[in-house]
Design a protein around this nucleic acid. Structure first.
Lengths: 348, 348
DNA sequence: TCCTAGATAGAAAGCGCTTGCTGTAACGCT
DNA sequence: AGCGTTACAGCAAGCGCTTTCTATCTAGGA
C-alpha cells in the first residue's frame, strides 16, 4: 500500500542503503545514481517514514515550543519568531525540522506532560517561553525533567524565562524587574504618589519580577506602599477590568494604575472609563510588553516594549545550534520604556 | 544508557509484550502484574520511545494544527481551543496526543511542506484553520496532498475554511459572506451610501467571501460601487492604517470604512483619528471577527463575532473522532453582528 | 603491467516497540 | 471427575529505516 524505501530502491535498481544515503546526503553517491534515485522517489511519490527514520537514527527533527497561552500575542509573536528560525518549511534553516508549538495554558502539569511527550518523541530541541511557575515541587520536577532531556541530547532554550540552574538550559531572560522599575519611576517622575498595581497570577516569575521592580521604584523614592494598592489577577483584559474596579473601591484617591501587561492595562482603561474617570487626566495607566494593539488604545498606552520577535528569533537560532549561546548560557534582554498618552501628571 | 521496554520487563519479571500491553491498556493484564510493571516503570523512570512505538503500531499520536499567523489571536484562539480538545496534556481526551501547531505564515509552500512533514510523522489528524489560498496550482497540490493524507488514515478537519471536495476532509466553514453582508447592511441601514472597503490579501477565500458579502449588500440596496472604494492589503493593523489613508485620498467623501478584520479596523481608526476625523461622527468603522481587544477600541468596534473558540473545540473533537462529523462532512458556522459605538448615522 | 588507494554500492544487523498466535493454568459446568 | 472456556502471559516476527562493515571497480603510481 504505502511506498517504502525498498520500493524506491527496487525502482531505481539500487539497494535501500543507497536510497537512504541519497535522501540524507551524508555519504558520497555518484551523481548518476543519485539522479536515478531521485527520479524514482518522485515517480513513486515516496514520503519518508518519520518514525522509522527516527528510530533507526535515534534522533528526530521535532522541535517543541512551549507557550503559556497561545491566544495571547505575547506568546504568539515569540512562537512565530522561534518557529521561523527553527527552519521548518521555508525557514532559513537547512534541515527540515518540524517546529511545533504546545500550549500549556499556564498549567504546570501540562507543561510537564508536554515535556514528557516531547521526550518520547526524542525532540531535537525544546524552547520554553514566558514566565515559570515558582511552586517549589513543580520547579524541582521541571529541573529534573529538563536535565533528563538535556542528557538525552535535546537542546533546551528558555526564552523570556529565568535561568534554570544545572539543567544545561540556555536562557534569554527578560529584564522584567528593570522594566517594571523604569515604568514606575516614570510615573513617579510625573508626580504620582499613590499608584495601584495589578499583578499577574501569584507564583509566577514574571509576576514577581515586575512587581519587585515596581516596589523598588517606590521605595527608591521614599514612597511607602499601601498593601491595598496591589491586586493579583490573571494576565487578561477581564482580570484588569475587575482588578481596577477593586482598586478604585479600596482607594479612590489613586492617581495611577500600573498593569502587569498590556491586556490587563486595556481592561483597566475600560474600567476607568466606565467609572467616569479620564485617562490620563484623572488616572494614568501603564502596561507592559507593548503588544501591537497597545498603540491603538485611546489614549495610546505607556508601556515597556519587550523585543519579543528578536528574542524569539535568537532563541530559535540557539536551539538550532546556529548561533553561539550567550556566555555562561545566560543573557538578559532589556525592555524599553515607551511613553505615550496614557500617562500624564496627576490631577490637582 | 536509556531505559527500554526490555529493561522494564526484566525488572518486573515479565515479558516485553506484557509491559507494552500494560502501557497501552488494550489487552487484559492481571491487576497484580500491571501493578508490578507500573512500579518498575516508575522506578526506572522509563519513557516510551515514541518513534519506535509509532513505527511498530503504524500510527502516531501527533495531531497537527496549521495556522496562517500564530501571532494573530484569530488563529491563537482557534488553535488553543483545538488543542485543548486534542487532549494532549490535561485535555479531556483519553489518549495522550501531542497537539502541535504549525505556523505557515500564510505561505502556500510552507503549508504544503508542513503537511508533508506531518505525513512523514504519520500524524493521527490534521486541522487546517483559516482561509485558503485560491491560486489554482496550489489548490490542486493541496487537494492531492490532503487526499493522500486521508488515504493514509489521517483524519482531516478544516476549521474556518471552505470545504475541499473529494479530499475526505471534514469542514467547519465560517459564513464570511453572510457576515460581510449583514455588516454592510447594518451600515446601509444607518444611511451610509459611500462605503470604503479594506480587503485582505487577494487570492484568499476569506478575503473574497467577505468582500462578496459586502458587495451583495450594496447591490441589494441599489448602491453602485465605485472601484476606488476597495483597497487590498494584509490582515494587520499597519495595512489598515495605510489603506485607510489611501481610501481617504481617493474619495474624501466616504462616510464609512469596512475592514477585512478587527486588526485592520484598528489601523483604520488610527488613520482616521490622525486625519482629524471623528468616529463615528465623521466616519463609521466596522471590523470582523470580534477579537477580545475590539471591545476596547474607542469607540468600541462594530464587528461580526465569529465563535472561534467553539468552532475550534468542535473541530478538535471531530479530529479526535469524539464527535460525529456534520452531515455531508460540511457545516457552516455563522457569525453574529455586534453593533457598537464605531458605527453611527452618517454626518449631514 | 601489477599493486594500492579512493570512490561507490550492497549486505545485514539492528533501533525499540506492537501484536498475532500459541501455550498454560485456573475456572465453571455437567 | 472430565472437558470446554476463559484469562493471562510469552514468543517471535516484523514495522521501515540507518549505518557499519565489506566487496567491487577504477584510476593512478612504480
Amino acid at each position: 500500500m504505502t511506498v517504502t524505501l525498498a520500493d524506491v530502491a527496487a525502482r531505481a535498481q539500487v539497494s535501500p542503503a543507497t536510497v537512504s544515503r541519497v535522501l540524507n546526503g551524508n555519504y558520497p553517491v555518484a551523481a548518476s545514481t543519485r539522479e536515478r534515485v531521485l527520479r524514482a522517489v518522485d515517480e513513486l511519490d515516496y514520503v519518508l517514514n518519520g518514525p522509522a527514520s527516527s528510530l533507526a537514527a535515534a534522533t528526530s527533527d521535532l522541535v517543541g515550543i512551549l507557550v503559556n497561552d497561545i491566544a495571547d500575542p505575547f506568546f504568539g509573536i515569540m512562537a512565530g519568531a522561534i518557529q521561523s528560525e527553527i527552519g521548518g518549511p521555508g525557514g532559513r534553516a537547512g534541515g527540515e525540522r518540524l517546529g511545533v508549538v504546545c500550549n500549556t495554558g499556564g498549567s504546570p502539569e501540562r507543561e510537564l506532560t508536554y515535556l514528557t511527550l516531547l521526550q518520547r518523541q526524542r525532540a531535537a530541541a525544546v524552547v520554553l517561553t514566558g514566565g515559570a511557575t515558582e511552586a517549589a515541587p513543580h520547579q524541582a520536577a521541571m529541573s529534573a525533567k529538563l536535565r533528563k532531556l538535556a542528557d538525552a541530547g535535546t537542546r533546551i532554550v528558555l526564552c523570556g524565562r529565568p535561568p534554570a540552574p544545572e539543567t544545561g538550559a540556555f536562557a534569554l531572560t527578560f529584564d522584567n524587574r528593570g522594566g517594571g522599575r523604569e515604568l514606575t519611576e516614570h510615573l513617579i517622575g510625573l508626580g504620582h504618589r499613590r499608584l495601584g498595581y495589578i499583578a499577574g497570577p501569584e507564583e509566577r516569575t514574571t509576576t514577581r519580577h515586575r512587581l519587585e521592580g515596581h516596589r523598588a521604584a517606590l521605595s527608591a523614592h521614599g514612597i511607602e506602599e499601601d498593601p491595598r494598592w496591589t491586586v493579583h489577577g490573571r494576565y487578561d483584559r477581564r482580570s484588569g477590568y475587575e482588578a481596577t474596579l477593586e482598586l478604585l473601591r479600596r482607594d479612590p484617591s489613586l492617581t495611577a494604575v500600573v498593569a502587569a501587561n498590556d491586556s490587563v492595562a486595556l481592561g483597566a482603561c475600560a474600567a476607568l472609563r466606565d467609572s467616569g474617570l479620564r485617562i490620563p487626566d484623572d488616572v494614568s495607566v501603564a502596561g507592559f510588553d507593548d503588544l501591537p494593539f497597545s498603540i491603538d488604545a485611546v489614549p495610546a498606552l505607556t508601556t515597556v516594549r519587550l523585543p519579543l520577535a528578536e528574542a524569539g528569533a535568537r532563541a530559535g537560532r540557539i536551539a538550532m545550534g546556529r548561533e553561539e549561546p550567550p556566555p555562561g548560557g545566560i543573557a538578559t534582554v532589556r525592555g524599553e520604556l515607551m511613553v505615550r498618552g496614557s500617562s500624564g501628571v496627576p490631577r490637582g
